[in-house]
Design a protein around this nucleic acid. Sequence first.
DNA 1: GTCTATACTCGGATAGAC
DNA 2: GTCTATCCGAGTATAGAC
Lengths: 207, 207
Amino acid sequence: MARIAGSIGAETADRVREQSLKLFAAKGYAAVSMREIAAAVGVQAAALYNHFPNKQALLADLMLSHMDGLLAAWDSEAVAGEAPAEALQRLVRFHIRYHAGRSDAVFISYMELRSLEPENFMKVEKLRQTYEGVVQSILEQGVEAGVFRVEDTRICAMAIIAMLAGVNTWYRQKGRLNLSQIEGIYTDMVLRVAGAGRREDLCSAAE
Amino acid sequence: MARIAGSIGAETADRVREQSLKLFAAKGYAAVSMREIAAAVGVQAAALYNHFPNKQALLADLMLSHMDGLLAAWDSEAVAGEAPAEALQRLVRFHIRYHAGRSDAVFISYMELRSLEPENFMKVEKLRQTYEGVVQSILEQGVEAGVFRVEDTRICAMAIIAMLAGVNTWYRQKGRLNLSQIEGIYTDMVLRVAGAGRREDLCSAAE
DNA sequence: GTCTATACTCGGATAGAC
DNA sequence: GTCTATCCGAGTATAGAC
C-alpha cells in the first residue's frame, strides 16, 4: 500500500487534466494560470511541465480527447439503419446524457476553439465538424425519407448543437429540473426544430 | 476644419469601445491586453485610462450599453397587445436584424459574463434576465392563449436565445446565406420550438 | 517526478512632462 | 488628452538539486 510520494491516487497527469478542465470551464483558458492549476492539483507550477510541454498543449489535449471520446461513444451508441426520427432522438438523449458528467469538457470544446493555435485548431475543428456532420446526416436522411422538414440541414444541425451546448450555461445538479426532465424537454424541442414528431405533439395547439 | 490633434474623427472613447469590442469578441476578454487595444485605436496604452478607469470598467461599459441598447430597441419595436405568434416572430426577426450589425457585442454579452467582477455581473445579469424574460413572457402568453405548446417556458426561452446566439459562431457576411435567408430559417425554427405555426408548415412531412 | 529558484516577458496601471 | 517612462505583479517556462 505504500506509494511513492507524488503518486498518491490518480496519476498526476490525470489530476492535471481534471483540474485544468474545471478551471478552464469556469474562468476561460486565458484567465487561468499554470500556477492556479498547479495549486489545484497540489504541486508546484514547474511540475506541470513534466506532463505537458506547455499550456497550449494542455488545452489541446483536453479538447482532442473530449472530441475523440464523444465520437467514439456515439459510434458505439448509434444504431445502423435506424429511422431518422429515432436516430435524432437517440442522438439528443445520448448528447445530453454523455455531456451530463462532462459539462466542463463540452463547454470548453464549444467556447475555447478560439484559444487554440492554428495547428491544434485544425485538428479539433475536424473532429467538431465530424460531430456536426453526424447531426446533419441524420437530418438529411430524415428529409429524404420525408419525415423531417428542414430548410437547411447544415444550419439546423448547428442550431441544434448550439441549443444543447447552451444547457451548460444554466444547468446545475441541484436545479429545478433533473437531468431526465431536461433530456425530455430538449428531445421534444429538437424534434420540433427538425419538423418531426407525431402530429398531436406538434400541432394540437394550433388546431 | 482644423482639428485638435488626437480628436480626428470619432471621439477617442468611442474608438476605444469600437476596437475593444472587436478584439474581445475575437480573442476573449482575458486574452486581449490594453496595449493591444491601444495599438488598434492608434494611441498609447496610458491614454486609454483617460476614458476608462480600468480594463474591467471597459468590459462592463460595453456589455451594459449593449444590453441597454438591445432592450431599448425592443421596447420601441414591440407592439403592445400583439398576438403571441406574431410577437415571437417579430422578436426573432428583431433579434437577428439588431444583432447583425452588432455581432461582436452580442457575442461578448453572451460569452464574457464570467469575466465580470461580481458587482458588474449583477448589473449585466439583471438586464440579461430582462431580455430572457421578454422571450419567456411571449411564450407564456402563447401557451395561455393556446397557440404555443411549450413544456417549460423558461428553458424554451433560454434554448431560443442560445440558438440565436450560436449564429455568431459561424455567420460571415460573405457566407453561403444572406441575412434575410438566415432570418427566415431561424424564424421558422423558433416557431417550431414554440410549437406554433400553420399546420402545413409543421406537419405536412409527418402526414 | 517534484522541488526551489529564477530568467524573461508581458500584463495592468500610474506619474509627470508636454 | 496624449505622450514617455516606469512600477510592480503575474505570466510561462527552464535549470538544476534531490
